[in-house]
């Protein structure tokens, strides 16, 4: 379920000795779309968008929080958990430890409460810098816990997805997180609470096939790659090349699977407006 395109970028990032997220080592970074060498500070100031071609860089959780949540209002949920390594893979715990040190992240998702223009919400943000945002038991549990907190505190839920899908290293247990998160969303639905799913580049596999596709409202960033099956798998199966623009946010909008494509600069206000449109529905 991990997408080939993502892989390629990951390899590239390692080659260039910089992360594929937004905080590379050094002051400069190369745009993946136009190839321009950019001053890092200038990119960050520009909402992590290439000033030359408009390419959307993937974002570290902390940067996304800065852009979406009112300053000083984010409170992370006190849920520090770790995988039991159900497949008993030798190198997996070591890999997680290295990633934690390298990224400053605990896992591929961060969850808590915070305000959007003064409106309190439950917010989950995924990060592609942590094992491609893949969903194992920790991500599944944190998303589920956040859904339960939204119900308990009667708050709208906003999830920013970016993921290669279910996490291979935890095997069937990762697959089961799809059913776990989905089951929890049925309860949020019954409670009459709003769930806004925001799809960012890339969102694939078991995340697309579970909570990311179940928002009351589904938004996407422009040109984000979104799908169930990875492009190489599809190509190998059908033996022909894929149409231009296949699996982009624009493609999904055209086929009726997302509500709206929203530019990064407008995301916070759009989410705020949507929250205000849905007031009074809670049971």
């Amino acid at each position: 379920m991990i997408v080939d395109k993502i892989k390629k970028r990951e390899v590239q990032a390692v080659k260039n000795k910089k992360s594929n997220v937004d905080i590379p080592v050094g002051k400069w970074l190369k745009c993946e779309q136009c190839g321009e060498i950019l001053y890092k500070e200038a990119v960050i100031k520009n909402l992590n968008i290439c000033p030359n071609c408009g390419y959307y860089f993937r974002m570290h959780i902390d940067r996304r929080l800065e852009l979406i949540i009112d300053e000083g209002t984010y409170e992370r949920f006190n849920l520090d958990i770790e995988t039991t390594n159900p497949l008993e893979l030798e190198d997996y715990p070591k890999k997680l430890k290295t990633l934690r040190e390298k990224t400053g992240l605990k896992e591929a998702v961060a969850c808590g409460t915070g305000n959007i223009n003064g409106e309190k919400i439950v917010i989950c943000i995924m990060d592609s810098g942590f094992l491609m945002g893949s969903m194992g038991v920790v991500v599944g549990e944190k998303i589920t816990y956040s859904i339960e907190q939204a119900i308990k505190q009667k708050l709208p839920l906003v999830i920013f997805s970016v993921s290669g899908g279910a996490r291979m290293q935890e095997g069937i247990i990762s697959l089961m997180q799809m059913a776990k998160t989905t089951s929890a969303l049925t309860k949020l639905d019954e409670a009459g609470l709003l769930y806004i799913s925001v799809l960012t580049d890339p969102t694939y596999g078991g995340v697309t096939a579970s909570f990311a596709s179940l928002g009351d409202i589904i938004l996407a960033e422009p040109k984000a790659m979104i799908g169930f099956a990875g492009q190489r798998v599809i190509q190998q199966t059908i033996g022909e090349s894929l149409p231009e623009g296949f699996q982009t946010a624009e493609f999904l909008l055209e086929h009726g699977f997302i509500d709206k494509i929203v530019e990064r600069k407008d995301l916070k206000d759009t989410i705020y407006k949507l929250i205000m449109f849905h007031k009074g529905g809670e049971k």
Partner: peptide, 17 residues
């Protein structure tokens, strides 16, 4: 689930979810 162009066009992920 079938990995095909049509399957993606018609929302394979949404259908499973």
């Amino acid at each position: 689930a079938y990995p095909g162009i049509g399957a993606e066009e018609r929302g394979q992920g949404e259908a499973i979810a």
